[in-house]
Simulated assay, not measured.
Amino acid sequence: MAPTGLLDGREVTTHWRFARDLARRFPRLKIDHRKPFVRDGPYYTTTGLSAGVNLSLAMIQEDYGPHVAQSLEQELALRLTKEDQEELPPDAIPLDNHPIDRLSDLIAWMLRNLHADLSVEVLARRACMCPNHFSKVFKSVFGEPPSDFVQNLRLNEARRRLSKRQKTLRTVSQSVGFASSAAFQRAFERKFGSRPSSYFEDRQSTCVAGANGST
């Protein structure tokens, strides 16, 4: 349908494998492959087979009401909001037995690249998984979503670098991947209960005390 121009300027979804190619070929589309199905005006798009079933249930609910849709939903053992169960990339390794082994190399890479883009899409691609499956496996192993895990890695490393007292706040925040010093300071204070600048204030106090003691 995209070649007809009917979807220009509209929000659509597609399978994550094809999102980049679709965006390149049809730049006027608003593509969000994270959604299993999307309705924009009279047009519906889906990411895959199970998402198509969910879309059908949503359309039945629109036309016949929630009771009919829920009855059919129970028969199909599906949920209207169920995420699309996408196929894994062909080279992905099953994670059912030892997922921690699969993710250990990824964590090491993350620690070496805290300044880089560590979005779910990037991490999932490195792990050879689709984003939805990666997020579920990651949370089952580490007990928190990838985004929270990345944030904690960045803040813990920032605190370690600040403790060396050799760099400015701006340099440290950029080196661990924060877009701005303000965002870094807010996140730091939420996690540790103190301002990152307090490290520099402590350093200045120590220097002053040392100077007074030597006189």
Rank of each mutant, 00 (worst) to 15 (best):
L55W: 03
L57D: 00
L57G: 03
A58T: 06
M59Q: 13
Q61F: 00
E62R: 13
D63Q: 14
D63R: 14
Y64T: 01
Y64K: 09
Y64Q: 05
G65T: 10
P66W: 07
V68Q: 09
V68G: 05
V68D: 02
Q70A: 11
Q70M: 10
Q70Y: 04
E73T: 09
E73S: 15
E73K: 15
E73N: 07
E75V: 11
E75D: 06
L76R: 10
L76N: 06
L78Q: 09
R79E: 10
R79C: 06
T81Y: 05
T81E: 10
K82L: 05
K82I: 05
K82Y: 01
K82M: 09
E83F: 03
D84C: 14
Q85T: 03
E86V: 01
E87F: 04
L88P: 02
D91Q: 02
A92M: 03
I93Y: 02
P94D: 00
P94R: 05
L95T: 03
H98A: 06
H98K: 08
H98E: 11
P99N: 13
P99E: 12
D101A: 08
R102P: 01
R102M: 01
L103Y: 02
D105E: 10
D105F: 08
L106H: 06
L106V: 03
I107S: 03
I107G: 03
I107F: 03
M110A: 13
L111H: 09
R112T: 11
N113K: 15
N113W: 09
L114S: 11
L114K: 07
L114V: 12
H115M: 14
A116R: 15
A116N: 12
D117M: 13
L118K: 07
L118Y: 08
S119Y: 12
V120Q: 15
V120M: 13
V120R: 15
E121D: 05
L123K: 01
R125Q: 13
R125K: 12
R126Y: 04
R126Q: 06
R126F: 04
R126S: 01
C128F: 08
C130M: 13
P131K: 14
H133Y: 11
H133L: 02
F134T: 00
F134M: 05
F134E: 07
F134Y: 09
S135A: 15
K136T: 12
K136S: 05
V137K: 03
V137T: 04
F138S: 00
F138A: 02
F138I: 01
K139E: 15
K139M: 15
S140K: 14
V141L: 05
F142T: 08
G143F: 08
E144Q: 15
P145A: 14
P145N: 13
S147G: 01
D148P: 00
V150M: 04
Q151V: 07
N152Y: 02
N152H: 13
L153I: 08
L153N: 04
L153F: 05
